[in-house]
Amino acid sequence: MIQEKKIAQQIREGNLEAFQEFYKSYFRRLLNYATMFINQSDVAEDIVQEAFFKLWNNREAINEDQTLVGWLYRAIRNQCINQLKQQKVHEKFIEFASNYEAIDKVYKHDFDLSLNDADDFYVWAEIKKAIESLPEKRREVYQLSKIEGHSHNEIAKELAITTKGVERHITLANRALRSKLKHLKTAIFVLALLP
């Protein structure tokens, strides 16, 4: 921790070598995060690089109470959300969304960020709640498909129903999720995400 503070201090003073060390330590971890969000590695990479570049340019203005990597984490998350507005949802997104809280907590713990800003995962918690509120069979099909990534055929075999039945469950699940999430302020964002 003392070491991290020293590096942060050096970066704030404009030490490029310290910044390089910092970049090398955190780039991959943050890229993984952004890729989970965006699922397009080139776009995710641009977002992470851009965030580092902004950090370097604003190094003197960043509040000292905050870890630099914590600042990056937030900047990247916000940029990813912006990006999602322009992009169709990817298969992995629901899996990511339903695990968002856990992932967020690991990163926040790692980056020494306060765990208290609850508004952070309001949307994600809502998605989870909405999934949980589906009728049991429908939820099971939805989770097997969207979260565990099984094919419709596999699910049909596993649950001893027809493929058509699986597809119907998924269509209805999506419809239900949409209507349940409609009341959210970020409705446009959330609805755009759901297939």
Binding site: F27, R28, R29, N32, A102, I103, K105, V106, H109
Partner: peptide, 28 residues
């Protein structure tokens, strides 16, 4: 996780382990 190659499930597993005890947080 550090190398940026962990999957969503693997990070979720780290979270489960972290929340088990304070000792795990120190170990992390």
């Amino acid at each position: 996780y550090i190398d940026g190659t962990a999957s969503i499930k693997e990070i979720a597993a780290i979270h489960t382990w972290l929340s088990e005890s304070e000792a795990n947080k120190v170990a992390f």
